[in-house]
Amino acid sequence: MKSPMKMLAPAPAGPPPALVAEPRPGGAQRAAELLQRQGVLAVLVLLCVISSVVFSSFGTLDNARGIAIQGSFLAVVALGMTLVIVTGGIDLSVGSVFALGGVLAAWASQYGFVPALLVPLAVCGAIGAVNGLLVAKAGMAPFIVTLASLLGARGLLLALTHEGATTYLVPRGSAFHELGAGTVWGFGYPVLIALALFGLGGVVLQRTSFGQALFAVGGSGDAALLMGLPVARTKVLVYTLSGLLAGFAGALNAARLSSGVTIIGVGMELDAISAVVIGGTLLVGGAGSVSGTLWGVLLLGVIQNLINQIGSLDSSYQSVVSGGFLIVVVVAQRYLSGARRGT
């Protein structure tokens, strides 16, 4: 793997004093910007090309389908996380909410397709909305608020399943079961749904006023307020969206597994945050993209897949590699944003 650090150009000197015409940013600044935006994609492509050469089983369509379906649930969760992190917040509750969404969907699937989707969406959306209200209106720290709902959602889940003793099953042959099991060209529905959501998420983030408000809130909350943006409403909405997406991902996962599994989703919030940060979204907010997150999710998936390919390596090492990669990315981001500011 080629370290992105190698590609770093030396930081240019400070910009000349502003006169009437602003000079174009230097080449190094632009390169740094491009790297920050598309660096993950480059690494991902490179890794895939090398892996296909080294491991004959990597480059197959089946393997690609596997990576895609494995990653699709995390992708949906990470999409919501991206929006939250762009506002400078964080949502630690998504792992628990994901699991809760799955159990609710499995339980409600006995009443049909629509309840199986609506029940988890309603409950998880409500949890997200409460997160948002506490953050935006009560001014509490997102870390604390969502840590509390992480615990709360997990507790609710355990209560619903009688401490995990009861497992709700999705009826075989039901439409909801088909949602998880069906495929198009061998790619599972969840993959297609995740892609569609990312397309939608990209449009929302880049091409709507709401998306611009997310960037503004994360970039400078005070400025956003003084410019008359609905800062509180934006925050409530973004945590609600995150809850909805996590719950929806959980429901999809339940459909695929045909049951509401209680032990999943532990630590998923950290995977989601890793994917978002690897994807080039600044943890402090104000800059980021959903496409980067998609590449981040895929990169994590590919790393896991590769470690599985190397049979001799314990799969636990996946976390070690991902963790190491995260550090590299964060360090690179630091240097890149320095280069971009011309400091």
């Binding site: 006023s209 408000a213 960037f215 503004a216 970039g219 400078s220 410019m227 943006l229 600044l282 104000g286």
Partner: peptide, 22 residues
């Protein structure tokens, strides 16, 4: 116009000008 420029540094010039009324 506030004393300390109250715009969002990471966003583009145009986005800053039209923020909230794009």
């Amino acid at each position: 116009i506030y004393q300390e420029v109250n715009l969002v540094p990471l966003m583009s010039v145009a986005r800053n000008v039209f923020l909230g009324r794009e």
